[in-house]
């Protein structure tokens, strides 16, 4: 399953819940305000630690928020809109954690 998270980890428990529910073959894609969790050095980094899922963040949303590539957490892959489509096509189901 592909999970998308669009809320800031500091304002919502979406990411924490999503990570705890995601299976090891799943992918989690951070979009919109969800991409704030992709920044290293913040308290939300702990939520991602130990997560077994593949983690992605949407580049246009990172860019819009001023998050440059050198500030991203380790092990996270950056994708564009085409990558979003590929992820959605690859997984049979999509769950949006709104």
């Amino acid at each position: 399953m592909l999970h998308t998270v669009n809320k800031s980890p500091y304002c919502s428990d979406s990411l924490r819940l999503c990570i705890s529910y995601a299976g090891k073959d799943d992918a989690v894609l951070l979009i919109e305000d969800g991409v704030y969790a992709a920044m290293c050095g913040g308290n939300s980094e702990a939520i991602l630690q130990g997560a077994e899922v593949a983690l992605y963040a949407l580049w246009p949303d990172l860019q819009a928020r001023g998050i440059s590539e050198d500030k991203l957490v380790d092990g996270l892959k950056v994708v564009g809109y085409d990558g979003f489509v590929e992820l959605a096509a690859k997984h049979s189901k999509v769950q949006s954690w709104l």
Binding site: S8, Y10, D33, P60, Q63, A64, R65, G66
Partner: peptide, 17 residues
Amino acid sequence: GDGVYQIMQGQDTRAAG
């Protein structure tokens, strides 16, 4: 809170439209 993100440097919204 998340309000500090409003004045972050380098915001470029062109790709996000």
